[in-house]
Nucleic acid binder design. Structure first.
Lengths: 288, 288
DNA sequence: TTCCATTGAATGGGTGATCCATTTAATAAT
DNA sequence: ATTATTAAATGGATCACCCATTCAATGGAA
């Protein structure tokens, strides 16, 4: 508070908290004219303020992917906070996929391209915390994939179909050579390619997030029991043929039927369906 | 690491980094038998390790919502890291909605119920960073809402319909009294209720995330131009009637038609559609 | 006894100084 | 011209504090 006349502020500038309090109160007052109850303020902490400040610059277009933030020591001084608390904010933004921190001279905090895998983490956390259930996730996946088939039939381009074709060939090879877990990887990629073929990254992101979790269950099931979906590549080819002919009804029916058979396979042994097995540890290929 | 025989470790246990290096290398080696190229390791930092450790406990069910982590000072000592770096990890988890940090004696880090609003943040960041476009978001929203109508017709319960009815009444009141921005708030809530009526929290979360952004645009448009959708409550009533009769085709048609007219309203003045206006600052009601 | 004010300990919030490890550019040596 | 060395900048991490908040325990007043 006060004047802050000293050039390097040798004594503590311990003014952050009271200032924030005032600001929060102002915001509430501006919210609506006559407020009946007024409890929920929940004083802002500096790292929240910092995160928000940076996100604001992002939304305003002042910061764009590729840009570099000032060095930690300098930015901390600019913001009038300690380097430690600034790092808490930067860490949060890094975990959020907004920043990438790079060491060394010419290093720094660089704004990143958005990482759509963040949504996977959200789904995973919601499942871990019991906010959503496996049943809801599976159901949502079926419905969303149905939508994907419609959009893919409408929008898939030649390159998308070729990529799916190549994926099916890899699946066949993995099947022949008995690499069951690699085949699960192929499946995961198949749905990713299918989602991408809709041409809509929002849809693709949603599909990926539900599929990523689902594939962990499949992976765990295959790894523990050794069973595997029969005639997988063949079914994929039929589906791709329907997709290529833009036959929505057929493609939709084929996919739904396949999803149901996978679901039956998974539910066959409820013990292996435990969240813990599927979520707990990190399989080599399924991780970023 | 070594023996760590001293009880309180007065000298620095500066051994963290080299250990992590070794561990990362081991992981890579275990990843596959014969690796052709080996570049991407990207040494793990302690805060990542900590986050992962805690998430692992979550997935394993050792930690559940409501549980409390040890105090920062103690947990830091248990993990053999400094309190500051532990706080970086806790901050990240707090931003992720996994933890809530509470001050005071009997305070601590408490595992939370999952907060589905996290997905909104993801969408917002992806849009800010240019990873997804407004067009993709709008398109996805239309398709997802179409799906929602199907599911709502199938699954909506009496309470859901009553809540929608009550929402429409609030909308009428706001319209009569000319509170245009409150009416936008009602719209946001309408879609939230509609999404909830599917009975599937995954679907609801997805719908909310795309709707939240969309409503920012509507809010900005209404706030700047003062225009507002005509006959809103009336259209809502028609839609709700169709929903109550489980008439999927009619409900779907009504909603789609409404969405299109809103879209026309928004696109009428492209200037007001700027990302910056919609995303930059925080409207009182639209914020957590 | 009951109730309320005081106190003190535990806890998260925050600061500043200091060191380490990595990276890169500038410089020197070959 | 090439290669090795050095120096500076930067993120990574630690330590030692201090502050503000919260709540249980304590003790005095009614």
């Amino acid at each position: 508070m006060s004047t802050k006349s000293s050039p390097r502020a040798p004594q503590r500038p311990r003014t952050a908290s009271p200032n924030r309090r005032e600001r929060a109160t102002d915001l509430r007052a501006a919210g609506s004219a006559a407020v009946p109850t007024f409890k929920p303020i929940h004083t802002r902490r500096t790292f929240e303020e910092i995160c928000e400040r940076i996100r604001e610059q992002l939304a305003l277009g002042v910061l764009k992917p590729g840009d570099k933030l000032p060095a930690e020591r300098e930015l901390a001084q600019q913001l009038g906070v300690s380097r430690n608390v600034l790092r808490e904010a930067l860490r949060s933004l890094e975990m959020a996929g907004v920043l990438r921190l790079q060491k060394g001279v010419k290093g720094g905090a660089f704004i990143q391209q958005g990482d759509t895998r963040r949504m996977n983490e959200v789904m995973r956390d919601m499942l871990s915390l019991g906010t959503i259930s496996v049943r809801e996730l599976s159901e949502a996946r079926v419905h969303v994939l149905d939508l994907v088939v419609q959009l893919a039939c409408a929008n898939a381009r030649r390159g998308d179909l070729d990529a799916l074709e190549a994926n099916i060939e890899r699946t066949e090879l993995a099947t022949k050579e008995g690499r069951l877990l690699d085949r699960v990887e192929c499946s995961r990629e198949f749905y990713k390619l299918l989602a991408a073929s809709t041409g809509n990254k929002v849809i693709a992101m949603i599909v990926d997030s539900v599929t990523e979790i689902h594939m962990r269950f499949v992976y765990a099931k295959v790894a523990s029991s050794g069973v595997a979906m029969a005639r997988l590549a063949e079914k994929r080819r039929q589906f791709l043929a329907a997709l290529s002919e833009r036959n929505v009804a057929l493609a939709s029916r084929l996919l739904r039927s396949h999803l149901e058979s996978v679901q039956r396979m998974l539910e066959q042994d409820p013990g292996a369906m435990s969240l813990h097995v599927a979520l707990a540890d990190v399989q080599p290929g399924l991780r970023r």
